[in-house]
Amino acid sequence: MFIINCPYCGERDQTEFTCHGEAHIARPDNPSEISDEEWGRYLFFRENPKGTHFERWTHDHGCRRWFNVMRDTVTDQIIKTYKMGEAKPEISNE
């Protein structure tokens, strides 16, 4: 069983959660002024790293809140979960 620590509810089973892709993507403030290429980059281009990745998750079968997860894409280890709006944690090089 894979346990995820919801910042609001505590440790719960993975099956209660859903992943919604990469976190910390800011919508451009001036969509009408930027080029199609820049808009396309915002809409479609994602990091896809081998290693630490930042994701948005929801606790669908629990408190139904959104939060961020710092996860290693190689080992699947969840390094940290934190609330929406909190700063992106530093990646340690250990």
């Binding site: 089973d13 099956t15 079968h61």
Partner: peptide, 19 residues
């Protein structure tokens, strides 16, 4: 139900959402 009943709903007047 995937809840850990040793950790959640262990006493009266408690609630939990799950499936």
């Amino acid at each position: 139900c995937p809840l850990n009943f040793d950790q959640y709903l262990t006493k009266g007047n408690s609630c939990a959402q799950s499936y």
